[in-house]
Amino acid sequence: MRDILAAEPDSSVAFLAGGTTVLDLMKLEVIRPERVIDLNALRGEYGHIRWDGVSLRLGAFARMAEVAAHPDVLAHYPVIAQSLSLAASAQLRNMASLGGNVLQRTRCAYFRDTSWSACNKRVPGSGCAALEGANRSHAVLGTSDHCIATYPGDFAQALLALDASVNVAGPRGSRRLPFASLHRRPGTIPHLETNLLSGEIITEFVVPSGAWTRRSLYLKIRDRQSYEFAVASAAVAVDLDGDVVRNARIALGGVATVPWRALEAEAALRGRPLTAEVARTAARAAFADATPQSHNAFKVELGQSTLVRALLQAASMEFQP
């Protein structure tokens, strides 16, 4: 491990795990690393899936499919299993690492096609072609005048909702940060997508357990039934006292520039019976600050409906004693 990370890396280096993002973007010349460092030697050390009754520890090099199928994950963290198994395709899930998955790059067409000169994510300061472009798939939450690209992943929403933390390692040692502070909203510098320091890699995700983790699910809405990024999605975890919400954790996907925690919606649910009306009120709160673009206004309503459906579905989950 130290050998791999010993050298002081720079932007000309790309780290490779599953390869599903890095190779894709290299072929498009969106990224042009001079060196690619294959990290898969770390899979032995950081490929684990461990549940000890208190927390779930997921090595960053575990493959999506392994985690999605793991009995402890299925039993105790359905939202994690579902967010993984509803993502991409079976082949990609066999390849993609958890760490690479949470760091996957946006699907914004103007980011992925280098013939567009204006993309602040790709070329800082160049502008944003999506603002006036075809932006049906773009974000309505967390946007800025500089970038409206959607965060495309699913698993990150599950981690975010469950207050996971992430362990990273780099040239200056190891540290832990809350998953919620891993991704950065675009603001004025959309090319900086995470708070990882140069040369740092994710080694492990730690997901605490709570009364809400079993009653959790991931709902993903898309145009076709499978193998598509979310148009809107919701990761929800709910702790109920009878019908009344003791605690709810919500993260939204497909509608935001980063994995999006809906704290306002959580507050709107707390202490109230989980009825359709209450869910609808909470969903409205989640999207109160939404900023739709020319082609994606529907996402404001769809995002709310997705959350309502997810919450009601979670409320109706039944458990074996």
């Binding site: 599953g18 390869g19 599903t20 190779l23 894709d24 082949q91 066999n94 390849m95």
Partner: peptide, 18 residues
């Protein structure tokens, strides 16, 4: 799609060196 160590994976997103 090919099988790599028995697992179905995409050969277009796999480096030969890996």
């Amino acid at each position: 799609t090919v099988l790599i160590d028995g697992s179905r994976e995409l050969s277009c997103l796999t480096l030969a060196v890996s």
